[in-house]
Design a binder for these strands. Sequence first.
DNA 1: TCTGGGGTCCTAGGACCC
DNA 2: TCTGGGGTCCTAGGACCC
Length: 431
Amino acid sequence: MDYSQEPTGVYLVIDNKSFYATVECTARGLDPLTTPLVVMSEAANTNGGLVLASSPAAKRMFNISNVNRRRDLPNDKRLLVVPPRMNLYIERNIAVNNIFREYVADEDLIPYSIDESILNLTHSWRLFGNNILQVVRRIQHEVKERLDLITTVGLGNNPLQAKIALDIYSKHNSEFIGVITYDTVPNKIWPIADITDIWGINHRTAARLAALNIHNIHQLANADPYLLKEKLGLMGTQLYATAWGIDRTNMHTQVLRRDKSIGNSQVLPRDYCQKDEIEVVIKELGAQICSRLRAHNKQAGGVYLSIGYSLSIQDRYGAGFAHSLKLSTSTAETDKITAQLLYLFDKYWEEGAAVRHIGVSVTRLTSRYGEQLDIFSSPRQDKVKVEDVMDEIRRRFGKTAIMRANSLKPGGTFIARSGLVGGHSGGNSFE
DNA sequence: TCTGGGGTCCTAGGACCC
DNA sequence: TCTGGGGTCCTAGGACCC
């Protein structure tokens, strides 16, 4: 393979090891490497919650994984079970990224998730040493010293190599550093035993590849790229590139493509069969996403509703439905958006069908810079302003300070969920 | 495994336009 | 009208990630 035309640089993907659990340990003055602790979602709607994170000691001593439920946990006094504090984790994540900013320009840092960031060190690493591994160790050391957090690092010539190096090689290496470069792709990527361990490949894709008699990365790398493209489309081309460690995505242009949708969803505490009680939840979720929309200074051009039916009726009614529509004009007004959500619900819901899961999103986001006027209705800028004030009050005094009267009706879950951040406990009353 | 929650990207078919 | 052909927009659904 000739890599001479491929983009080449120095990239890191840095992950905070057992992030929530480690933050909880250090915030409590405990050693994250020896303290068995799990962070358990409190969501009252499910059977006792879900393990969101577990410390290395919890994994080691009790064999706990993140798919465990509360009922799976051992009854052992040594195991600390704590609720999540999302706001604390967000704050720590910002602190970690501020350390990274000492090593790269702002445009060369991409926070990828709450515990992972991508750094393009191509232009700056020589400022900090002659050996890239020493620079990596220095960054890890800084994060450990200042925040008491353990980081694992993938290093590569592009973000894809760095990500695979992180996922496959960093965790079991004594320094928590994994490295893949163009030179070592056949040695490092092809032997990976389970194809679904590769970022971007899950069971469905593995099955499609198996149908082409491709069962491992070595076979993928040596398959006919034209056949892959013919059978799998663009996905086939990308898979072939992945096997060869090639990544042509441009970090900078990718960043611009964010904020495409905002959504919230929830599993209901029981089956909801009455139309009005289902609608209460849709209205609450609609108000919530509109509030977030305005907080981001955006407006939406489309809405999306998904309804999941109770398992008990799925053989009769199917799994549920999901539908979306485009708005005639973009808006951030709760009333307009919820009206469209309710329209979709009314149109597709089968009377009496038991609902267990509800999701709503606003899509086609644009910046809210003077709302476009709709010739069929009068301008109502004043209404948006009122909602801005309501948002401000919620920010300062908590989400339940002002709420729609609907939430007091049976079925409403807004009050119970008001302390949640991203569906988990925020740890305080603000968001 | 079976109801945790928030996202993004890709594909395919129908409607519609010129 | 019949089947000319290219292009875009929209919706539904699949797949994957953290």
